[in-house]
């Protein structure tokens, strides 16, 4: 019996210790990944007009604001093209129950390890389709590596980050350099969002 409980206890302890470090190979580790992740504020288009005297008269005194406004949020899309594949358009969902929270992008694409041509466009589709930022680059990835494409802090250019960049404490300058077209678009975009035309006119502002 003494041998019995020693053997049982040893077996149980070994089983616990072995299962506490159960080896597992996650599926997809032999692949590489392209990850798109960033957060950006939305541009809302707000149309305001003065209230008429009749409207003001119908309202209680404390609710008589001089203007009535309606705001409209644009839709955003991510257009991805990897190598020669056809463009993949992803509708970006705005955060929050009302869809009025900042927009969060988190997309992943599994790719083969090696060198790939990657084209990315961030598109705002309001009255007109505007390319807010774009990236046309060539990346080289190893198996198990995740290459991150993100928007810079100013929100006006897309850039590439890899594990090596993070270890080096920065981003890949060559890969992260946006082309000329990006700068032009962004400048235009910023100018557009700064536009102010008085209280009764249509205006856009950041949420």
């Amino acid at each position: 019996m003494k041998v019995g409980w020693i053997l049982c206890s040893a077996a149980a302890a070994l089983a616990i210790a072995a299962l506490a470090r159960a080896p597992w190979i996650p599926a997809g580790h032999e692949q590489a990944w392209l990850r798109f992740s960033w957060r950006m504020n939305l541009v809302a288009t707000e149309a305001c007009r003065p209230r008429t005297d009749a409207e003001l008269a119908e309202l209680p005194v404390h609710m008589r604001t001089p203007e009535v406004c309606t705001s409209d949020l644009a839709d955003y899309f991510l257009v991805l093209r990897i190598d020669t594949a056809s463009a993949d358009t992803v509708a970006l969902v705005r955060g929050g129950v009302k869809g009025d929270r900042p927009l969060f992008v988190l997309e992943e694409r599994r790719i083969r390890p090696g060198t790939h041509d990657v084209q990315v466009e961030l598109v705002r589709a309001a009255a007109a389709r505007t390319v807010l930022a774009s990236l046309d680059t060539r990346i080289t990835v190893r198996s198990g590596e995740i290459v991150l494409i993100t928007l810079d802090r100013d929100g006006d250019r897309l850039m590439v980050r890899s594990a090596d960049d993070v270890r080096a404490g920065g981003t890949s300058a060559a890969a992260g350099q946006p082309n000329r077209r990006d700068h032009d678009d962004d400048a235009e975009h910023r100018a557009e969002t700064r536009e102010q035309r008085g209280p009764a006119a249509q205006r856009k502002h950041f949420r």
Binding site: P26, I146, S162
Partner: peptide
């Protein structure tokens, strides 16, 4: 930014 190749998980 790296997918673990093999990992010991708690069973």
């Amino acid at each position: 930014l790296h997918m673990p190749e093999a990992v010991g998980i708690d069973g």
